[in-house]
Amino acid sequence: MTAHDIGSLDVRLMRTLLLLLTECSVSRTADFLGQAQPTVSLTLKRLRDMFNDPLLVRSGSALVPTDRGLALREALEGILHQIDSSLGERARFDPKTAETKFRIVATNCLGTVFLPPLVSSLAELAPHISLDVSPMPDEHDLLSGLADGTIDAVIGNWPRPPQHLRLSPILTTDIVCLVRPNHRFAGRRGRITLADYLKENHLSPTSERHAHLSPIDGRLIELGKKRRIRATVPEYAIAPYVLAQSDLVFTTGRHFAEQVAQTFPFAVLDAPEELGRMHFYMLWHDRKHHSPAQIWLRGMIKTVAARMRALEDMVLPPLPPSPLDEALICGHEPMPSGKAI
């Protein structure tokens, strides 16, 4: 069989050949296809020429497949099944039985607030699905991960999300400042003014080279302003420990701040009005848009976000205490393991 012959073997011809090799009858094949018997006979002749093999031969009063015909029948069953399953009607996604892994990239400040109810919901509704949540990579890796499908969805809050991605708003929260109890802002009433805010030294989870991606620094850039960032941390979870031993100001969303303030004796103050509010949204690529599994995942994220919006006044559980927390809360310097204070 030449390359030209292979190119001429379309799906219709493959289905006809499979019927002929299965039914071993030209007349029955014609009945199945709703074609005239001479038409099917001509197709069989064409196929014999293409494969340079009789395919079906006489054995008494019946037709039987040749060795080449038997091999083709087995191969065609697999090929046509693959075509039907791949191009046929999309299979339904059943979260109760599905076994897959979703990878989400999420901004750190939602970690202790948003992820616990999301993981809990997934465990209840989709017991065989696993969730891989990663911190925000650099912009190039994020966009390439979405484009190549290794990232399913992103929960972000930077000021200008890429316009070529799909977007769905999920949460909006007040922006507040956290300071330790003896900071000069701790006892003040009312909102911090922008002028006072810019005079302070700040702690940030975003490095200066990525300032444009920060919901705080990105907004200040729009205003033609810049704050003094004296330290950055790679994880939100580290911020309370740094803040407890410094006079830095940490600016974040109210959800995270209120939760931290239940464990650490921090003051929570309204940030300058010019910073606006913090907007969280979900991003995904067009390649994932029509996938039933991905549609279900995005629906779960939206459902958890809707519950949070409905329970904005809810008191969130405090962060789990640790020996380091207790030392800092009591005003002691943490001691090395094994030493008495």
Rank of each mutant, 00 (worst) to 15 (best):
S130T: 15
P127G: 11
V113R: 03
S85K: 02
I129N: 08
T100E: 15
L131G: 13
P95K: 03
V105C: 08
A98F: 06
I104A: 11
T112G: 15
V119G: 02
F114M: 06
L87Y: 03
R90K: 04
G88R: 00
L110V: 06
P135F: 12
T107Q: 10
G88N: 00
F93R: 01
E99N: 11
S85A: 04
L122D: 03
V105A: 06
F93T: 03
T112H: 14
V113K: 04
P117I: 05
Q82S: 08
K101S: 15
D94P: 03
A106D: 05
E124I: 07
L131Y: 11
A126S: 09
A91H: 01
F102V: 06
F102D: 09
E124D: 14
F93L: 03
G111Y: 12
T97C: 01
M136G: 12
R103N: 09
I129Q: 13
V105F: 05
L115R: 08
I83S: 01
L118F: 15
H81M: 09
A91L: 03
L125Q: 15
S120C: 04
F114E: 04
H128W: 09
P135E: 14
L125Y: 09
S86F: 02
E124V: 08
S120A: 14
S134M: 15
R92T: 10
P127R: 11
S130R: 14
L125S: 13
Q82V: 05
S121M: 13
S120K: 09
A98N: 08
E99I: 09
I104Y: 06
T112W: 07
D132E: 13
E89S: 01
T100S: 10
G88D: 00
M136D: 14
D94W: 02
T97D: 03
R90T: 05
K96M: 09
E99F: 06
A91R: 06
V119S: 09
C109K: 07
G88S: 00
V105T: 10
N108D: 13
V119M: 09
T97S: 14
P117D: 06
H128F: 11
P117F: 04
D94M: 02
A98R: 10
C109I: 12
G88F: 00
D132H: 11
L131P: 15
A123C: 13
I129S: 09
G88I: 00
S85G: 00
P127K: 08
L115K: 07
P95L: 04
R90C: 00
P117Q: 05
L125V: 12
L122S: 06
R90I: 02
M136T: 13
P95E: 04
I104V: 13
L125E: 12
L87V: 01
S85I: 03
